[in-house]
Design a binder for these strands. Structure first.
Lengths: 337, 337
DNA sequence: CTGAAAGCGCTTACAG
DNA sequence: CTGAAAGCGCTTACAG
């Protein structure tokens, strides 16, 4: 592979001139620039990013950090972020912080970031003080999707609003006996989403004077399997709800499946609603509150790009709340009187 | 942040010695090494990867390239690969080659790889000749998961065997009228999986003397939505199958949902089987042929690491076929007499 | 508009 | 066992 020196020699100019010409800087005569471009093209020249980085201090790489990657929400974000960044000449270095051998996640460390990325995007990841201090010390701009990180730019949906939409939908259908799936104990993590959604559910119930049954608030682990298991227990009892609001579609899908497996018809015997509009929700007929996950990824990438000095330098929003929308399908209906 | 020069000064040795000591090379006295280690620790020293790369020619980064990222199969692979590589001090640069604005995928280009990655892992990605030539020219080792790439190391399941297991299961239950979902026209892509699975299906049908109905071979686009749509058409006709084999669980899930929505009971009226053991298959009761996707990611990462000179240099397998297993759940049963 | 030179922070022979 | 020096391939003031 050819280097900048090869191009300079071939074009009969200095490497400094080649560097300027190729990067489109001022102060290069049109003729010279043209010649350099031609030679570079002929030689299949591509600047060594590693040399460029060492000299310029920028890597054109952004770190994307997630607590896990396999779930639909995260995979969708990563895909959207990668595409947006690549359109602007940037690349994605991926970190999956899930630790299989432990139920604690891995910490973000200096050698993941130092001189390796120009910025960081966190995907629903509560950061520890040390991690935040590290990112600060390294001078890295950061954008948080979902769970907010200190006072950094943040892209998310309005969790409370989303769950309010979901719960109000059930109430408006006439349901009064409503269960909830996805209540994560507040001491487990500083993740805002579960708590905000549960609180919104409670608030709506209260505002309609509806009773909240302790044993109908299920603390499932945000997976379909876990939700299905909790649902089975719930359905085994004599005292059953007529509807269930799940904090995510994956849990809603688990709940629907568990109900059906026990002969409970949906929506005749039980209405189910989720939040997300997961890739499979449409086909499964799940009523849900849609969030545009790809849009969140795109917004976050653009904010970061701006922080890195690309695009319109003029500020731009630093706090984006992506709209949310009720999608009624066949998993919800009025209760069977 | 401190540099190697800072450490050298503080420890009273040359930068060369620091470099050797920190990398655990020979020819450093225990006392010196200890001192250097101590100073480095005190100064929070982490070598600049960009400088290291320029000097050594290695980046400790591997490119992971996929036609799209959002599907369960790909997300699971990426997660497993990332974890395995990170344990060995390597990082993942991610490329999603899906092009939203076009139905052709983006090409792999020189500026994605050149001096940026030490090797490449492809995820079910048929490579063009130019891409292969590029990877060769850059001297990058490559490992292919799923769709094989020329004579490079390859990790996959036995597609034909998997579909044979699925089809034989249906036949052994007594089904004779079996439909197939996921037949991609061979001119669309050089992806082996769809073709290998369809052929295996046909072979099993033939070997049992079962008739293959042209209109029961559905060319769904490997998504649940597409499979559901095709299934609706199929069920609308008077001449119906008693069972359907889908080439992936996502399609099987779509087929099940479409059937149920039309009042077709599963498995009483229709048996459905898939391939994958998708995260939602268990909860949905889908009978399937399980493939261990994470294991494929791990194997591929390890083969690449070996090619890069890590771990036992002694060869090791270069062709891995991960085993596959029939998981019978509630979506399959003997036909209704 | 263009070039010579220093510098980015490491690794790697080469001496000793 | 250790150090001085060249080199990796760019960018960036500084002169001119």
């Amino acid at each position: 592979m050819s280097t900048i020196t090869d191009v300079a020699r071939e074009a009969g100019v200095s490497v400094a001139t080649v560097s300027r010409a190729l990067r489109g800087l001022d102060r290069v005569s049109p003729r010279t620039r043209e010649r350099v471009l031609k030679v570079a093209e002929d030689l299949d020249y591509v600047a060594s990013p590693t040399a460029t980085s060492l000299a310029s201090g920028r890597t054109q790489v952004v770190g994307v950090v997630a607590p896990f990657l396999m779930r639909w929400f995260f995979a969708t974000l990563v895909s959207a972020i990668e595409k947006t960044l690549r359109q602007h000449g940037h690349h994605v270095l991926l970190f999956d912080l899930e630790d299989d051998s432990d139920n604690q996640r891995l910490p973000l460390s200096q050698n993941m970031l130092w001189k390796r990325v120009d910025g960081v995007i966190t995907l629903n990841l509560p950061m520890t003080d040390q991690e935040l201090e590290l990112v600060d010390r390294l001078g890295l701009p950061l954008v948080a999707i979902g769970t907010a990180v200190a006072d950094r730019p943040n892209v998310r949906i309005d969790d409370a609003l989303a769950m309010r939409l979901a719960t109000e939908h059930l109430v408006s259908l006439g349901h009064e006996r409503i269960a909830y799936i996805g209540a994560i104990p507040s001491n487990v993590a500083h993740i805002q989403t579960p708590q905000a959604r549960l609180e919104a559910f409670r608030e709506v119930m209260r505002s309609h004077g509806l009773e909240e049954h302790k044993q109908w608030i299920l603390g499932s682990a945000w997976t379909a399997d876990s939700a299905a298991e909790d649902m089975r227990t719930l359905l085994a009892s004599a005292d059953r709800p007529t509807a269930v609001a799940a904090a995510s579609d994956e849990m809603a899908i688990g709940a629907m499946a568990a109900a059906r497996a026990q002969g409970v018809r949906i929506p005749e015997d039980l209405s189910v609603i989720g939040i997300d509009d997961h890739a499979l929700s449409n086909v499964l007929g799940l009523t849900t509150v849609r969030q545009d996950v790809a849009a969140q990824g795109r917004e976050a990438a653009e904010i970061l790009l701006r922080a890195l000095g690309y695009g319109p330098s003029g500020g731009g929003p630093t706090e984006v709340v992506v709209p949310t929308e009720l999608i009624v399908r066949s998993s919800t209906a009025p209760p069977a009187s």
